[in-house]
Design a protein around this nucleic acid. Structure first.
Lengths: 209, 209
DNA sequence: TTCTTTATGGTACGAACGTATCACGTTGCT
DNA sequence: AGCAACGTGATACGTTCGTACCATAAAGAA
């Protein structure tokens, strides 16, 4: 059986097994044995492809961020060809909301990683914790672009609004995650706030699901 | 030495030791031995006052919520005698922001508990996870009261704004916690949004620290 | 004073976890 | 064909963790 095997693909499979079990039982509760069982391989294999647990966790976080990026771009693309800035912004924010099983998993695991990064410097040094900063600048760029096209209300501070939107998205996300809000209510709040930012006329409005 | 001892006080001391070590090393990393060492007692004592670790964690969460409540009312009281609705709202929201060591600890531990509650039904059944719901209705009440005093801009949906403020506060809190934003920036965002809700004239403005 | 309850220390036990070690079949190179 | 590297399995080791057990000194009740 030991054919020559694609390491990258195998690592991805194991990483996804990690994310699945993390979504099911919590990131704190995942062991190498659980990951191995979930991936349908032996414990030794997990050790083989990721020498240590820390490296497995790091790769898992990386994989999570990648999948989220794909998710966002897919959402943006689904907003139509050459979507307006508002549609793109909605795509990003809605993708971060825990609506289905996959986004729930994403939000839970990502929040777990964020919490861990507060007390774990190795995790904090990872670029993916810094990634929200990239999201912030992307959002700022989108808003500024909308501003130049005269799509936003006069007098809005795009930098501040970017931070606001991101904070709202994260806060609403956890709110939905713990069952305090419905996804629909969270989406409504976001939409309402976007209405405050954008002018009413050109909002090729709801691309929510 | 074994005088008759106040159980409630002892439990509080141990619970605070738990919160301290949780703030320092993360909630996932606290063991009974750590708590015992931090409290300056033997492992047996922690077992004696809290029979199991789960009960210790539950009590710790309860203690955390109580301390946060005191913190909020202290802030509200510091806003002056008979403070306006906006001042009270600011007090609540600013108290939730991780500014000093204590509020950082609060935010980190509380978020850890929230994350745990997603996969731990015993924790999810605890009323303190439901507590944010009480905060929401309190905020709604405050906003409605302000609305009746003609202090808010026309056309604002108080229910929706309550949810928005809470989500922003939580989101900004974690943003500050992971070092992505400064507390001042977060406070500015909150203030800006309150400016959007309240009429400009009667805002007896900044009670920030 | 004697006895029972309370408070506390020390320590042991079983399980789980991350990691390391040994072994072996398979594949590709020369 | 033979040899070295790769992929995989099984299992063992040392540690840590939560919990349980045993002992004992002080304090209040009788």
């Amino acid at each position: 059986m030991p054919k020559r095997v694609d390491h990258a693909e195998r690592r991805s499979e194991i990483a996804e097994a990690l994310l699945r079990v993390a979504a099911r039982r919590g990131l704190h509760a995942v062991g190498m044995r659980d990951v191995a069982a979930e991936a349908g391989v032996s414990l030794r294999l997990v050790q083989y492809y990721f020498e240590t647990k820390e490296k497995l966790l790091l790769y898992g976080l990386q994989h999570l961020a990648e999948r989220f990026g794909e998710r966002v771009t897919a959402r943006a693309r689904a907003a139509g060809h050459s979507p307006g800035p508002r549609a793109v912004i909605e795509a990003v924010l809605m993708a971060a909301l825990p609506t289905d099983e996959e986004s729930r998993a994403f939000h839970l695991v990502y929040t777990s990683y964020a919490v861990l990064s507060v007390t774990d410097q190795t995790l904090a040094a990872q670029p993916f914790i810094k990634n929200p900063d990239a999201a912030r600048s992307a959002l700022t760029g989108l808003l500024r672009q909308a501003e130049e096209s005269d799509l936003v209300q006069p007098g809005v501070d795009v930098q501040l609004e970017a931070v606001t939107l991101l904070a709202m998205s994260a806060g609403l996300g956890t709110s939905v995650l713990v069952g305090q809000s419905s996804p629909e209510a969270a989406a409504a709040v976001l939409d309402h706030h976007l209405d405050r930012i954008f002018r009413g006329n050109l909002a090729d409005a709801g691309t929510r699901e």
